[in-house]
Every structure is written in C-alpha cells, then in structure tokens.
C-alpha cells in the first residue's frame, strides 16, 4: 500500500504535448479514476506512473520516494491492461505466478500465493487452462489475479472493462470495486466511461487535452463542475448550455422541468418548444428549443415519467418549463465556472 504523487508531469511526443503539467496525488488505499475522452492523455499518464514511458518533465513519487529513474520492475506497481496482456503460451497458473518468478520468490511461497490470489477471484478451476480457452470475464479475473498476487504498492487499471459486453461490464464493475475495498490497494483506474467513473471512484480526475480539468468526488464533479468541459462531459444527456451575458448558463436535464412540477423555491422560467420525446422506461427524455434561442441549440429535459402529466409534453407545442435557481451554473467566456451570474 502506498501513496502515489505526480508533480507537474509533462510528456511531449515531438512537438505534441500529450500531457501538459499534470499534478495529482492519490492517498493510500484510495480509488482514483482518470476520466477523459479518448486521446486525452490519460493512458499515457498511467504508463508514466508504471514506468513504461518516461515523462519529459516532472516527478513521480511512490510513498514519497521519487521513482523517475527506476525501471517498471523496481516500482512495485501492478498494471492491468485493456486487452489484459495475458501470456498465451502459459497456463493460468503460470500467468499468475509470473510476477513472483521474476522476483525469485521461493517455489513453495509461489504456490501458496497463487492459490490465495485465485481463491480471491474464484478462478481455482481455471488454473490449468490457457488464456485462449477462457471467456472475456474469466480473462479479466486472471489478469486481476496476476496483478494482485505480489501485493503491489499500487494497482493501475487501463480501461479494464472495455472488452466486456454491457451486462458483464456492470457486474465486473461491482466486483472490482468491492474487491478493491477488501484488499485496500491504492488504485488508479483509467476510463472514458463516466458511468464507471461515477460508480467506482472515491475521487475522479477529469482530464482533457493532457490537463486535469477537475479533481473531486463524483458528487462534486457532477454538481459543481469546474468548467464547461467537465459540465458537458459528465452526465447523460449532457448539461444544457445556453448563451448568457457573454458566457454560458448551464443546467442539468433532470433539473429542467415543467413549471407546474416545481412547487417552491426561486425559479427561472423558460418557454420550451417540444420537438420530440423518447420514453426510456425509467425516464422520459424530451428534446426541444427555448423561445428566443437559436434552433441549433437543442435543449433536453429528463423527466420522471410517472410524475409528468402527458398533456404537458405534447410534441409541437410550447410549454412553460423552469429550473430552480440553485440548479443553475454560470460559466464565463473562457468556460470557467463563475459562482454568481
């Protein structure tokens, strides 16, 4: 177990900056998610922590010790890759034992540790198989067992769920999270999927174009986005943005409700033209535009279907909608959040 600290990490490929001065620190036992669109530099950052890439500038410290010049094997870190990187010519047993063999752990100890790790992940019955004989979910567990068998200082996970189908993904998400809480390993998890980030992270670092846009708990990322990028990247559908006093005014689709549904508190009213609506079972998404605004600026509302009178949302009609004032977020011209209008 350890803390991981990055200070002003910069990585350039030629003239292109993949990472542009990222600083963050991960507490002992914390589950930090790096969330960002593809190509934002999050995987490169993870590889720098692992030692697979060398940063152009900045320091990586593990447990307070700067490890810039240490090779990956001296950092005591385990990493799990997107395609798992299992060794196809080894059995599951030998795959899990490999990190121990490289450290010349005695044979008896290897046997007990492999047994421990495979029991932890419930893959004892797979030990004599080869990776190609396993399903996607089983491969993922083997990769996790291999990463954990030597009790790493920190665990790095690079989009570990992206190769699983949707159903398996949600159960695997749950499993990894529970598992991490049980063993308490400091974990850095890279994903572009906000559902994974919100569901699993103790904290989330939102990354775009090689910069950290915001670090915080899932709730603070969602409720108090630091800028326009975070506001529109997190949340489905994304936060509505309309031009406002040279900047932007934002509100979440679930806060944008028919006027009659908001009973108390101060509100800002809009006249909303309903173009179409989608019924998704647990919710209804309504698309339209606001009076006096460009038709290109599509606004969405997310309504709980049980509580909405159907008359209120007939496509092709205007209807008064409103947002509670405390749900409004203001962003200035450069996209940075402003606390008041």
């Amino acid at each position: 177990m350890a803390t991981v600290t990055a200070t002003e990490i910069t990585k350039k490929f030629g003239d292109v900056s993949a990472i542009d001065g990222v600083s963050l620190s991960v507490a002992d036992g914390e589950f930090l998610v790096l969330l960002g669109p593809s190509g934002c530099g999050k995987t490169t950052f993870l590889r720098i922590i692992a030692g697979l890439e060398k940063q152009t500038a900045g320091d990586i410290a593990i447990d307070g010790m700067v490890v810039n010049d240490l090779p990956p094997r001296a950092r005591g870190i385990a990493m799990m890759f997107q395609t798992y990187g299992l060794y196809p010519h080894y059995t599951v047993r030998d795959n899990i034992a490999f990190p121990l063999k490289t450290q010349r752990v005695p044979k008896d100890e290897i046997r007990t540790k492999v047994a421990w790790a495979s029991a932890l992940l419930g893959i004892e019955h797979l030990l004599d198989r080869r990776p190609r004989q396993l399903s996607g979910g089983e491969r993922q567990r083997v990769a996790l067992a291999r990463a954990l068998v030597r009790e790493p200082t920190a665990l790095l996970l690079d989009e570990p769920l992206s190769n699983l189908d949707a159903k398996l993904r949600s159960s695997a998400r749950n499993e990894i999270k529970q598992f991490q809480q049980r063993v308490g390993t400091t974990t850095i998890y890279v994903t572009h999927d906000q559902v994974e980030a919100m569901g699993m992270g103790d904290r989330i670092a939102v990354i775009d174009h090689g910069r950290v846009r915001q670090i915080g708990t899932p709730a603070s990322i969602y409720d108090d986005p630091a800028d326009r990028f975070v506001a529109t990247f997190v949340g489905t559908p994304p936060m509505n943005l309309i031009d406002w006093n040279g900047g932007h005014l934002g509100f979440r689709p679930e806060d944008f409700l028919p006027r009659e549904m908001i009973e108390n508190g101060e509100v800002t009213e809009f006249s909303f033209f309903i173009e179409r609506s989608e019924y998704l079972g647990s919710e209804r998404i309504v698309y339209g535009r606001l009076e006096g605004r460009s038709a290109a600026q599509e606004i969405t509302a997310k309504l709980p279907p049980a509580h909405v009178p159907l008359a209120a949302i007939r496509p092709g009609e205007w209807h008064p909608f409103a947002v509670r004032n405390d749900a409004l977020r203001y962003f200035d011209q450069s996209g940075v959040r402003r606390r008041q209008s």
């Binding site: 990956p72 870190i77 890759f81 798992y84 299992l86 060794y87 196809p88």
Partner: peptide, 29 residues
C-alpha cells in the same frame, strides 16, 4: 505480439532477457 503482453511482462518485473526468452521467443516459436 500485442504490445499489452510485452508491457505486462515489463511491469511484472521481467527484464530484457526474461522478456525475450520467456515471453517473446515462445510466442513467436
């Protein structure tokens, strides 16, 4: 050979020789 496999071996503590003779060579055999 997928880059992930080679990277995994590197992180798992394999140096140049071990990577070559225990991972790469058997895979290209």
């Amino acid at each position: 050979i997928p880059q992930d496999v080679i990277d995994a071996a590197t992180v798992d503590g394999a140096g140049f020789w071990r990577r070559n003779y225990q991972i790469i060579l058997p895979m290209i055999m």
